[in-house]
Amino acid sequence: MTGTEEKYPLHKAAREGRLEDLRILLASGRYDANKGTFELVRPLHEACLAGHFDCAALLIHYGANVNLANIDGATALCDACCSGNVRCVQLLLEHGAQVNPPFLLTSPLHEAVFRDHWECLKLLLKYGANMNKSDCHFGTPLHIAACKGHRNSAAILLRLGASPNIPHIHQTPLHEAARSQDLEFLELLLAHGANVYSCNNRGLTARQLVPSSTSPCKVLLHEWEKIPRSLLHHCRLRIRSALGPERLKFLPTLRIPKVLINFLNFE
């Protein structure tokens, strides 16, 4: 073993998923379940990042704090969302993990969207994750989805009321999707109310960021700039805005006609 592994045996056992070794170490009383490395990585971080549910559960049983952050501000919940392990995410949330950490270098929701782990994303939203909060790097989760082309995650966020018009360093998700020339992503954003006239810090609209004059993306954006949208389109957006994210979560359970629920859900 290296010196680091000798110094942090809990970390190594948790990272490698060696449940019985971890149990023996913790039961000995010689090791602190919350001991951090020089980067403030705890054994629980290691278990969650590797997706070892049983190891994470054992560490919590022995007093691991689910809300301790590493040097980059990531909690164990962030790491569980990185791995995409829904069971680990559920475990941490049930034991009081903060779905919206106070010091937002990153957040669990940003990490889930970055890797398109949409099942983790839905679970975080169920527990009240803030869809419109920006991190220090990419912006909102929708910015990340636009940068990475993760349409599944974007569709979930938009359906539940995430704003497509929040800027980050003067760029909206529509600008990001235009730069990557993702036609389907642009259509998704526009249908959910993205402002086609919004300009970045150089005074450029999303259309002006599309390099090719014959690109279907440029044609689409030009049409949205020149052709007024239907009253039906504006009514849907207005009703969704009035409901807000908290009510949109429960839209399928509202006592209104099914046809109206489908309309508001873009179905």
Rank of each mutant, 00 (worst) to 15 (best):
R151D: 12
A146L: 00
A178W: 01
G161H: 03
A145H: 10
P173V: 06
S134A: 14
S134H: 10
E176T: 08
P173W: 06
S134P: 11
H168Y: 15
P167A: 07
A177V: 02
N132M: 04
S163V: 00
R179V: 15
K148V: 04
P167F: 00
G149N: 02
S153A: 15
P173E: 10
H143W: 01
K148Y: 04
L157W: 08
I144P: 04
Q181L: 12
R151P: 08
F138G: 07
Q171T: 12
A145C: 11
G161C: 01
H170Y: 12
R159Y: 07
L142T: 06
R159W: 10
F138S: 10
P141M: 01
P141G: 02
G149A: 00
A145M: 08
E176R: 12
H170V: 01
S134K: 12
L142Q: 03
L174W: 04
Q171A: 13
L174I: 02
G161T: 04
S180I: 03
C147E: 13
A155L: 11
S163G: 04
E176N: 12
R179Q: 14
G149P: 02
D182I: 05
H150L: 06
N152E: 05
A177E: 01
I144Y: 00
T140C: 09
C136P: 04
P164V: 06
A145E: 07
C147S: 13
C136R: 13
C147Y: 14
I166T: 03
P141A: 03
E176I: 08
R179G: 15
P164S: 08
L158I: 06
A154Y: 02
L142E: 01
Q181S: 15
A145W: 03
H168D: 15
N152H: 01
S163L: 02
A146C: 04
P173L: 07
H137S: 15
C136E: 13
L157T: 10
R159S: 13
N152Y: 03
H175I: 00
L157K: 05
F138Q: 09
H168K: 14
E176M: 10
I166C: 02
P164N: 09
P141R: 07
Q181Y: 09
H175A: 02
P141C: 05
G161P: 02
R159K: 14
L174Q: 03
H170L: 09
A145L: 08
Q181V: 14
P141I: 00
P164T: 09
S153C: 15
T172N: 12
I166E: 11
P164K: 07
S180K: 06
L142G: 05
G161L: 07
G161D: 00
N165V: 05
G149S: 00
H137D: 14
R179Y: 11
C147F: 15
A154L: 06
K133R: 11
A162G: 03
P167W: 02
L142A: 04
N152M: 01
F138V: 09
S180Y: 02
K133Q: 13
S134Q: 13
